[in-house]
Design a protein around this nucleic acid. Structure first.
Lengths: 183, 183
DNA sequence: GACGGCCTGTACCAAGTGGTACATTCCTCG
DNA sequence: CGAGGAATGTACCACTTGGTACAGGCCGTC
Protein backbone atom coordinates (compact mmCIF):
# COMPACT_ATOMS: atom_id res chain seq x y z
CA UNK A 1 0.00 0.00 0.00
CA UNK A 2 1.20 3.47 -0.77
CA UNK A 3 0.14 6.04 1.76
CA UNK A 4 -0.20 3.62 4.59
CA UNK A 5 2.14 5.16 7.10
CA UNK A 6 1.09 8.54 5.90
CA UNK A 7 -2.59 7.80 6.40
CA UNK A 8 -1.99 6.47 9.89
CA UNK A 9 0.08 9.53 10.72
CA UNK A 10 -2.62 11.80 9.41
CA UNK A 11 -5.28 10.08 11.46
CA UNK A 12 -3.20 10.39 14.63
CA UNK A 13 -2.42 14.00 13.91
CA UNK A 14 -6.08 14.85 13.40
CA UNK A 15 -6.96 13.04 16.58
CA UNK A 16 -4.44 15.03 18.52
CA UNK A 17 -5.22 18.38 16.93
CA UNK A 18 -8.94 17.90 17.41
CA UNK A 19 -8.32 17.76 21.13
CA UNK A 20 -5.59 20.32 21.51
CA UNK A 21 -6.24 22.78 18.74
CA UNK A 22 -4.30 23.53 15.63
CA UNK A 23 -3.68 27.03 16.91
CA UNK A 24 -0.30 27.03 18.52
CA UNK A 25 0.62 23.53 17.49
CA UNK A 26 4.12 23.04 16.19
CA UNK A 27 5.39 20.22 14.08
CA UNK A 28 7.55 19.06 16.94
CA UNK A 29 4.69 19.21 19.39
CA UNK A 30 2.39 17.24 17.15
CA UNK A 31 5.07 14.71 16.33
CA UNK A 32 5.93 14.11 19.96
CA UNK A 33 2.27 13.70 20.86
CA UNK A 34 1.65 11.06 18.24
CA UNK A 35 4.91 9.26 18.70
CA UNK A 36 7.01 10.25 15.75
CA UNK A 37 9.48 12.94 14.85
CA UNK A 38 8.81 16.24 13.15
CA UNK A 39 11.09 15.00 10.44
CA UNK A 40 8.43 12.45 9.48
CA UNK A 41 5.68 15.01 9.25
CA UNK A 42 7.78 17.05 6.89
CA UNK A 43 8.62 13.93 4.90
CA UNK A 44 5.02 12.85 4.45
CA UNK A 45 3.31 16.19 4.13
CA UNK A 46 6.04 18.36 2.72
CA UNK A 47 5.53 21.25 5.10
CA UNK A 48 3.35 22.46 7.90
CA UNK A 49 0.87 23.92 5.44
CA UNK A 50 0.92 20.60 3.64
CA UNK A 51 -0.18 18.91 6.83
CA UNK A 52 -2.98 21.40 7.34
CA UNK A 53 -4.03 20.90 3.76
CA UNK A 54 -4.08 17.14 4.23
CA UNK A 55 -6.27 17.62 7.29
CA UNK A 56 -8.64 19.83 5.35
CA UNK A 57 -8.86 17.22 2.61
CA UNK A 58 -9.58 14.55 5.16
CA UNK A 59 -12.32 16.65 6.72
CA UNK A 60 -13.80 17.11 3.27
CA UNK A 61 -13.87 13.36 2.69
CA UNK A 62 -15.51 12.82 6.05
CA UNK A 63 -18.21 15.30 5.21
CA UNK A 64 -18.76 13.80 1.80
CA UNK A 65 -19.24 10.42 3.43
CA UNK A 66 -21.69 11.85 5.93
CA UNK A 67 -23.54 13.46 3.08
CA UNK A 68 -23.74 10.23 1.16
CA UNK A 69 -25.06 8.45 4.19
CA UNK A 70 -27.71 11.11 4.55
CA UNK A 71 -28.76 10.66 0.95
CA UNK A 72 -29.15 6.93 1.49
CA UNK A 73 -32.21 7.55 3.64
CA UNK A 74 -34.37 7.85 0.59
CA UNK A 75 -37.61 7.07 2.35
CA UNK A 76 -37.38 9.59 5.16
CA UNK A 77 -39.52 12.70 5.24
CA UNK A 78 -37.95 16.14 5.22
CA UNK A 79 -38.46 16.54 8.94
CA UNK A 80 -36.96 13.14 9.67
CA UNK A 81 -34.02 14.01 7.48
CA UNK A 82 -33.40 17.25 9.32
CA UNK A 83 -33.74 15.56 12.67
CA UNK A 84 -31.31 12.83 11.71
CA UNK A 85 -28.80 15.37 10.47
CA UNK A 86 -28.97 17.30 13.69
CA UNK A 87 -28.75 14.25 15.90
CA UNK A 88 -25.68 13.08 14.10
CA UNK A 89 -24.01 16.42 14.35
CA UNK A 90 -24.93 17.08 17.97
CA UNK A 91 -23.35 13.84 19.14
CA UNK A 92 -20.73 14.78 21.73
CA UNK A 93 -18.29 12.25 20.36
CA UNK A 94 -17.98 14.37 17.26
CA UNK A 95 -17.38 17.59 19.12
CA UNK A 96 -13.61 17.53 18.97
CA UNK A 97 -13.69 17.07 15.21
CA UNK A 98 -16.25 19.81 14.90
CA UNK A 99 -14.21 22.20 16.94
CA UNK A 100 -11.34 21.51 14.61
CA UNK A 101 -13.65 22.07 11.67
CA UNK A 102 -14.65 25.51 12.92
CA UNK A 103 -11.10 26.42 13.73
CA UNK A 104 -10.12 25.54 10.18
CA UNK A 105 -13.11 27.45 8.87
CA UNK A 106 -12.06 30.53 10.76
CA UNK A 107 -8.53 30.32 9.48
CA UNK A 108 -9.72 29.68 5.96
CA UNK A 109 -11.78 32.86 6.10
CA UNK A 110 -8.61 34.72 6.99
CA UNK A 111 -6.70 33.33 4.05
CA UNK A 112 -4.59 30.71 5.79
CA UNK A 113 -2.82 28.98 2.91
CA UNK A 114 -3.40 25.49 4.22
CA UNK A 115 -7.04 25.96 5.15
CA UNK A 116 -8.29 28.32 2.45
CA UNK A 117 -9.12 25.63 -0.14
CA UNK A 118 -11.99 24.46 2.00
CA UNK A 119 -13.93 27.61 1.22
CA UNK A 120 -14.72 26.12 -2.13
CA UNK A 121 -16.61 23.18 -0.76
CA UNK A 122 -17.77 23.99 2.79
CA UNK A 123 -21.00 25.43 1.55
CA UNK A 124 -21.79 24.31 -2.01
CA UNK A 125 -21.25 20.59 -1.47
CA UNK A 126 -23.86 20.54 1.23
CA UNK A 127 -26.26 22.96 -0.38
CA UNK A 128 -26.22 21.03 -3.65
CA UNK A 129 -26.78 17.70 -2.00
CA UNK A 130 -29.50 18.95 0.33
CA UNK A 131 -31.19 20.72 -2.56
CA UNK A 132 -31.34 17.47 -4.47
CA UNK A 133 -32.86 15.70 -1.50
CA UNK A 134 -35.49 18.40 -1.12
CA UNK A 135 -36.37 18.41 -4.79
CA UNK A 136 -36.84 14.66 -4.57
CA UNK A 137 -39.37 15.40 -1.86
CA UNK A 138 -41.36 17.64 -4.13
CA UNK A 139 -40.12 21.17 -3.47
CA UNK A 140 -39.72 23.52 -6.42
CA UNK A 141 -36.06 23.99 -7.25
CA UNK A 142 -35.52 27.54 -6.06
CA UNK A 143 -37.36 27.05 -2.84
CA UNK A 144 -35.46 23.82 -2.26
CA UNK A 145 -32.21 25.68 -2.67
CA UNK A 146 -33.09 28.41 -0.21
CA UNK A 147 -34.35 25.84 2.27
CA UNK A 148 -31.19 23.77 1.92
CA UNK A 149 -29.04 26.82 2.52
CA UNK A 150 -31.11 27.85 5.49
CA UNK A 151 -30.99 24.37 6.96
CA UNK A 152 -27.24 24.14 6.62
CA UNK A 153 -26.77 27.55 8.20
CA UNK A 154 -29.08 26.63 11.04
CA UNK A 155 -27.28 23.43 11.82
CA UNK A 156 -23.90 25.13 11.74
CA UNK A 157 -25.09 28.08 13.78
CA UNK A 158 -26.67 25.87 16.39
CA UNK A 159 -23.61 23.69 16.50
CA UNK A 160 -21.50 26.77 17.13
CA UNK A 161 -23.89 27.56 19.95
CA UNK A 162 -23.75 24.04 21.34
CA UNK A 163 -19.96 23.90 21.24
CA UNK A 164 -19.69 27.19 23.08
CA UNK A 165 -22.36 26.67 25.70
CA UNK A 166 -22.64 22.91 25.98
CA UNK A 167 -26.35 23.42 26.47
CA UNK A 168 -27.69 20.49 24.51
CA UNK A 169 -31.28 20.87 25.65
CA UNK A 170 -31.49 24.46 24.52
CA UNK A 171 -29.92 23.69 21.17
CA UNK A 172 -32.27 20.75 20.68
CA UNK A 173 -35.27 22.93 21.47
CA UNK A 174 -34.19 25.55 18.96
CA UNK A 175 -33.64 22.93 16.31
CA UNK A 176 -37.00 21.37 16.97
CA UNK A 177 -38.56 24.77 16.49
CA UNK A 178 -36.77 25.04 13.18
CA UNK A 179 -38.14 21.70 12.06
CA UNK A 180 -41.68 22.63 12.96
CA UNK A 181 -41.51 25.94 11.18
CA UNK A 182 -39.50 25.25 8.12
CA UNK A 183 -40.01 21.66 7.04
CA UNK B 1 -6.59 60.15 29.68
CA UNK B 2 -5.26 56.83 30.75
CA UNK B 3 -5.42 54.24 28.00
CA UNK B 4 -5.38 56.70 25.18
CA UNK B 5 -2.35 55.45 23.29
CA UNK B 6 -3.34 51.96 24.22
CA UNK B 7 -6.82 52.37 22.82
CA UNK B 8 -5.49 53.81 19.58
CA UNK B 9 -2.99 50.99 19.32
CA UNK B 10 -5.71 48.45 19.92
CA UNK B 11 -7.92 49.96 17.24
CA UNK B 12 -5.10 49.90 14.71
CA UNK B 13 -4.17 46.36 15.64
CA UNK B 14 -7.73 45.17 15.21
CA UNK B 15 -7.95 46.93 11.89
CA UNK B 16 -4.84 45.20 10.68
CA UNK B 17 -5.67 41.78 12.05
CA UNK B 18 -9.17 41.91 10.63
CA UNK B 19 -7.64 42.18 7.18
CA UNK B 20 -4.68 39.88 7.55
CA UNK B 21 -5.81 37.33 10.08
CA UNK B 22 -4.64 36.72 13.57
CA UNK B 23 -3.37 33.32 12.57
CA UNK B 24 0.30 33.61 11.90
CA UNK B 25 0.59 37.18 13.05
CA UNK B 26 3.60 38.00 15.18
CA UNK B 27 4.01 40.92 17.52
CA UNK B 28 6.69 42.33 15.29
CA UNK B 29 4.57 41.95 12.20
CA UNK B 30 1.59 43.65 13.76
CA UNK B 31 3.72 46.40 15.22
CA UNK B 32 5.42 47.15 11.92
CA UNK B 33 2.08 47.23 10.12
CA UNK B 34 0.55 49.75 12.46
CA UNK B 35 3.65 51.85 12.85
CA UNK B 36 5.01 51.00 16.23
CA UNK B 37 7.45 48.55 17.77
CA UNK B 38 6.70 45.17 19.22
CA UNK B 39 8.07 46.58 22.43
CA UNK B 40 5.04 48.86 22.68
CA UNK B 41 2.57 46.05 22.23
CA UNK B 42 4.20 44.18 25.07
CA UNK B 43 4.22 47.32 27.15
CA UNK B 44 0.54 48.07 26.67
CA UNK B 45 -0.87 44.56 26.58
CA UNK B 46 1.59 42.62 28.66
CA UNK B 47 1.98 39.74 26.25
CA UNK B 48 0.70 38.37 23.00
CA UNK B 49 -2.17 36.67 24.77
CA UNK B 50 -2.90 39.94 26.51
CA UNK B 51 -3.31 41.57 23.12
CA UNK B 52 -5.66 38.85 21.93
CA UNK B 53 -7.62 39.20 25.14
CA UNK B 54 -7.91 42.95 24.61
CA UNK B 55 -9.19 42.32 21.09
CA UNK B 56 -11.76 39.87 22.39
CA UNK B 57 -12.93 42.41 24.96
CA UNK B 58 -13.21 45.03 22.29
CA UNK B 59 -15.26 42.73 20.09
CA UNK B 60 -17.52 42.10 23.04
CA UNK B 61 -18.08 45.82 23.54
CA UNK B 62 -18.84 46.25 19.87
CA UNK B 63 -21.43 43.52 20.02
CA UNK B 64 -22.99 44.94 23.16
CA UNK B 65 -23.31 48.28 21.42
CA UNK B 66 -24.90 46.67 18.38
CA UNK B 67 -27.27 44.85 20.66
CA UNK B 68 -28.26 48.05 22.44
CA UNK B 69 -28.91 49.74 19.14
CA UNK B 70 -31.13 46.87 18.14
CA UNK B 71 -33.09 47.16 21.34
CA UNK B 72 -33.67 50.83 20.66
CA UNK B 73 -36.01 49.98 17.80
CA UNK B 74 -38.85 49.47 20.18
CA UNK B 75 -41.60 49.96 17.63
CA UNK B 76 -40.40 47.49 15.03
CA UNK B 77 -42.17 44.21 14.42
CA UNK B 78 -40.37 40.94 14.90
CA UNK B 79 -39.87 40.53 11.18
CA UNK B 80 -38.54 44.04 10.82
CA UNK B 81 -36.20 43.44 13.71
CA UNK B 82 -34.84 40.28 12.13
CA UNK B 83 -34.46 41.99 8.80
CA UNK B 84 -32.63 44.91 10.31
CA UNK B 85 -30.30 42.58 12.19
CA UNK B 86 -29.44 40.68 9.05
CA UNK B 87 -28.95 43.77 6.94
CA UNK B 88 -26.54 45.19 9.46
CA UNK B 89 -24.59 42.00 9.69
CA UNK B 90 -24.50 41.32 5.96
CA UNK B 91 -22.96 44.70 5.20
CA UNK B 92 -19.69 44.01 3.38
CA UNK B 93 -17.92 46.73 5.32
CA UNK B 94 -18.24 44.62 8.41
CA UNK B 95 -16.89 41.48 6.80
CA UNK B 96 -13.29 41.88 7.92
CA UNK B 97 -14.37 42.29 11.52
CA UNK B 98 -16.67 39.34 11.20
CA UNK B 99 -13.96 37.15 9.78
CA UNK B 100 -11.85 38.07 12.76
CA UNK B 101 -14.79 37.26 15.01
CA UNK B 102 -15.11 33.78 13.59
CA UNK B 103 -11.40 33.19 13.73
CA UNK B 104 -11.45 34.12 17.39
CA UNK B 105 -14.48 31.95 17.93
CA UNK B 106 -12.72 28.98 16.41
CA UNK B 107 -9.66 29.49 18.54
CA UNK B 108 -11.77 29.98 21.62
CA UNK B 109 -13.42 26.63 21.01
CA UNK B 110 -9.98 25.09 20.98
CA UNK B 111 -9.03 26.61 24.28
CA UNK B 112 -6.78 29.42 23.13
CA UNK B 113 -5.96 31.26 26.36
CA UNK B 114 -6.50 34.69 24.88
CA UNK B 115 -9.72 33.92 23.06
CA UNK B 116 -11.41 31.42 25.37
CA UNK B 117 -13.11 33.98 27.63
CA UNK B 118 -15.43 34.93 24.81
CA UNK B 119 -17.22 31.61 25.10
CA UNK B 120 -18.97 32.99 28.12
CA UNK B 121 -20.72 35.76 26.30
CA UNK B 122 -20.84 34.90 22.56
CA UNK B 123 -24.14 33.15 22.93
CA UNK B 124 -25.92 34.15 26.16
CA UNK B 125 -25.60 37.92 25.74
CA UNK B 126 -27.43 37.75 22.46
CA UNK B 127 -29.92 35.11 23.43
CA UNK B 128 -30.90 37.01 26.57
CA UNK B 129 -31.33 40.29 24.78
CA UNK B 130 -33.23 38.83 21.86
CA UNK B 131 -35.44 36.88 24.23
CA UNK B 132 -36.36 40.10 26.00
CA UNK B 133 -37.24 41.74 22.72
CA UNK B 134 -39.42 38.82 21.70
CA UNK B 135 -41.19 38.70 25.03
CA UNK B 136 -41.94 42.40 24.63
CA UNK B 137 -43.60 41.48 21.37
CA UNK B 138 -45.89 39.04 23.06
CA UNK B 139 -44.22 35.63 22.82
CA UNK B 140 -44.38 33.31 25.79
CA UNK B 141 -41.03 33.15 27.55
CA UNK B 142 -39.89 29.67 26.60
CA UNK B 143 -40.88 30.02 22.99
CA UNK B 144 -39.19 33.41 22.90
CA UNK B 145 -35.99 31.86 24.14
CA UNK B 146 -35.96 29.09 21.57
CA UNK B 147 -36.78 31.55 18.82
CA UNK B 148 -34.02 33.88 19.94
CA UNK B 149 -31.51 31.05 19.96
CA UNK B 150 -32.65 29.89 16.56
CA UNK B 151 -32.48 33.39 15.14
CA UNK B 152 -28.98 33.94 16.42
CA UNK B 153 -27.82 30.60 15.06
CA UNK B 154 -29.39 31.33 11.70
CA UNK B 155 -27.75 34.71 11.38
CA UNK B 156 -24.36 33.32 12.34
CA UNK B 157 -24.71 30.30 10.10
CA UNK B 158 -25.77 32.37 7.15
CA UNK B 159 -23.00 34.83 7.80
CA UNK B 160 -20.53 31.96 7.78
CA UNK B 161 -22.02 30.99 4.43
CA UNK B 162 -21.85 34.52 3.09
CA UNK B 163 -18.25 35.00 4.16
CA UNK B 164 -17.22 31.77 2.48
CA UNK B 165 -19.16 32.08 -0.74
CA UNK B 166 -19.70 35.81 -1.12
CA UNK B 167 -23.10 34.99 -2.53
CA UNK B 168 -25.16 37.75 -1.02
CA UNK B 169 -28.28 37.06 -3.04
CA UNK B 170 -28.44 33.44 -1.95
CA UNK B 171 -27.87 34.32 1.67
CA UNK B 172 -30.53 37.02 1.49
CA UNK B 173 -33.01 34.59 0.01
CA UNK B 174 -32.36 32.06 2.73
CA UNK B 175 -32.77 34.67 5.40
CA UNK B 176 -35.97 35.94 3.87
CA UNK B 177 -37.28 32.40 3.98
CA UNK B 178 -36.37 32.25 7.64
CA UNK B 179 -38.28 35.44 8.34
CA UNK B 180 -41.38 34.19 6.56
CA UNK B 181 -41.37 30.89 8.37
CA UNK B 182 -40.27 31.75 11.83
CA UNK B 183 -41.37 35.25 12.71
C1' DG C 1 23.68 -11.25 -2.14
C1' DA C 2 23.13 -6.78 -4.43
C1' DC C 3 20.08 -3.55 -5.77
C1' DG C 4 16.67 0.17 -5.21
C1' DG C 5 12.40 2.07 -3.20
C1' DC C 6 10.50 3.68 0.77
C1' DC C 7 10.93 5.15 5.33
C1' DT C 8 13.23 7.04 9.55
C1' DG C 9 16.75 8.90 13.04
C1' DT C 10 20.46 12.46 14.01
C1' DA C 11 22.30 16.57 13.60
C1' DC C 12 22.10 20.85 12.16
C1' DC C 13 20.76 25.61 10.47
C1' DA C 14 19.24 30.39 9.70
C1' DA C 15 15.52 33.02 10.87
C1' DG C 16 12.61 34.39 13.68
C1' DT C 17 9.92 34.28 18.35
C1' DG C 18 8.11 36.45 22.74
C1' DG C 19 9.97 38.73 26.35
C1' DT C 20 13.38 41.66 29.20
C1' DA C 21 16.90 45.31 30.78
C1' DC C 22 18.15 49.66 30.57
C1' DA C 23 18.44 54.16 28.99
C1' DT C 24 15.94 57.90 27.28
C1' DT C 25 12.37 61.14 25.99
C1' DC C 26 8.05 63.41 26.94
C1' DC C 27 4.52 65.50 29.71
C1' DT C 28 2.32 66.94 33.74
C1' DC C 29 1.99 68.82 38.11
C1' DG C 30 3.88 71.18 41.91
C1' DC D 1 12.44 74.92 37.00
C1' DG D 2 12.54 70.18 38.56
C1' DA D 3 10.80 65.86 39.90
C1' DG D 4 8.64 61.83 38.66
C1' DG D 5 5.94 58.81 36.26
C1' DA D 6 4.21 57.26 31.77
C1' DA D 7 5.69 56.12 27.26
C1' DT D 8 9.13 54.80 23.89
C1' DG D 9 13.60 53.27 21.53
C1' DT D 10 17.71 50.12 21.38
C1' DA D 11 19.82 46.17 22.17
C1' DC D 12 19.76 41.93 23.59
C1' DC D 13 18.59 37.01 25.08
C1' DA D 14 17.41 32.19 25.31
C1' DC D 15 14.69 29.42 22.92
C1' DT D 16 11.92 27.52 19.31
C1' DT D 17 10.51 27.29 14.75
C1' DG D 18 10.08 25.05 9.98
C1' DG D 19 13.04 23.03 6.98
C1' DT D 20 17.35 20.49 5.21
C1' DA D 21 21.52 17.27 4.58
C1' DC D 22 23.03 12.98 5.16
C1' DA D 23 23.42 8.51 6.58
C1' DG D 24 21.51 4.67 7.22
C1' DG D 25 17.68 0.62 8.05
C1' DC D 26 14.12 -2.23 6.29
C1' DC D 27 12.35 -5.26 2.76
C1' DG D 28 10.85 -7.28 -1.38
C1' DT D 29 12.80 -8.45 -6.33
C1' DC D 30 16.06 -10.11 -9.46
Amino acid sequence: MEGDARAALLRSAIGHLAEHGLGGATLRGIAAAIGTSHRMLIYHFGSRDGLVLAIVRSVEEEQRAALAELAADAGASTAELARRMWERVADPRLHPHERLFFELYGRALQGDPGAAPMLEWVVPTWVDQLTTLLVQRGLPADQARATARLGLATVRGLLLDLLATGDRAAADAAHELFIRRVT
